[in-house]
Nucleic acid binder design. Structure first.
Length: 269
DNA sequence: CATAAAATAT
DNA sequence: CATATTTTAT
């Protein structure tokens, strides 16, 4: 049980890393969480320009001397690192489940997830790990060993669609490939014991390196802190937070287990 | 110092 | 797109 360091660990470093004046960059912050935005049916077109070639310097291509500034504006942003929070993973699994193995390719998954800031590489990498996890689980279930190791804790948090495990992957029969009825209500009780949920803060934690701006509770409670980049649902994590739910069930668990991943035609590739 | 997770390269 | 390898965080 050495993993339980996390909840204490980051808390210790918390104030150390965050309040650096230099890090308090006035970068463009999303005032609207994409979930909320999606709920409002507004397209959260925040930062369109990932990296792909794009950049057309109007005329003079020079003057871009990068002085290796630590506090680089939103432009030329290096993605710090994506943190796959349970919620995010849940979304991932849902997307894969609804797509079916055949269509469950990184690009499609990414599109279905509609998470701003999420790149195909991120999904691909995670998908790889997810597949490995599934495979491992198959082998283990046959041997009769423990179902879950201490590892895979992230994956364990998400309800694994049954079709993935068994092996079927793709019954080529016929051609009707619509297995929609995924898990009914996942009961969310997946969390086993302790120290996890901090992922929300964890996501924010990795942000605070690039963005400070704390102490701005948006007049609400803790919302979902996913999206490792972009939405900074940073709130004051006071010590007494342990009393309340640090995380919320994401959008779903609606009526009838019908979950609609808002797929809006943003004209994305 | 070892392991897990994400990124990056093939 | 899938897999392998490398990097980075814990």
């Amino acid at each position: 049980m050495r993993e339980d360091e996390d909840h204490t660990n980051w808390f210790s470093r918390w104030e150390e890393q965050l309040p650096t004046p230099e890090e308090l960059t006035p970068l463009t912050q999303n005032l609207i969480p994409q979930d909320l935005a999606l709920a409002f049916d507004i397209t959260p077109n925040r930062s369109p320009p990932p990296p792909p070639s794009s950049n057309l310097p109007p005329s003079s291509s020079s003057e871009f001397a990068d002085s290796a500034g630590p506090d680089e504006p939103a432009r030329t942003l290096k993605r710090p690192r994506l943190v796959w929070t349970p919620q995010l993973h849940k979304r991932f699994v849902d997307a894969v489940a609804h797509l079916g193995i055949k269509n469950a390719v990184p690009k499609t998954i990414m599109q279905l997830m509609s998470v701003d800031g999420l790149t195909r590489e991120n999904v691909a990498s995670h998908l790889q790990k997810y597949r490995l996890y599934l495979k491992r689980m198959q082998g283990l279930s046959a041997g009769g060993a423990s179902s879950d190791a201490a590892a895979d804790r992230l994956f364990a948090s998400a309800p694994v669609p049954h079709h993935f495990l068994h092996r079927g992957a793709g019954p080529p029969s016929g051609g009707g490939e619509h297995y929609l009825p995924y898990v009914p209500v996942a009961a969310a009780a997946a969390f086993q014991h302790h120290h996890h949920q901090m992922a929300v803060a964890a996501a924010a934690q990795q942000h605070q390196r690039h963005m400070g701006h704390f102490g701005s509770p948006p007049g609400g409670q803790f919302e979902h802190g996913f999206l490792a980049r972009g939405t900074q649902a940073v709130h004051r994590m006071v010590q007494g937070v342990a009393s309340g739910p640090a995380y919320v069930e994401d959008l779903e668990s609606g009526g009838g287990g019908r979950k609609v991943l808002t797929l809006f035609p943003t004209g994305e590739e």
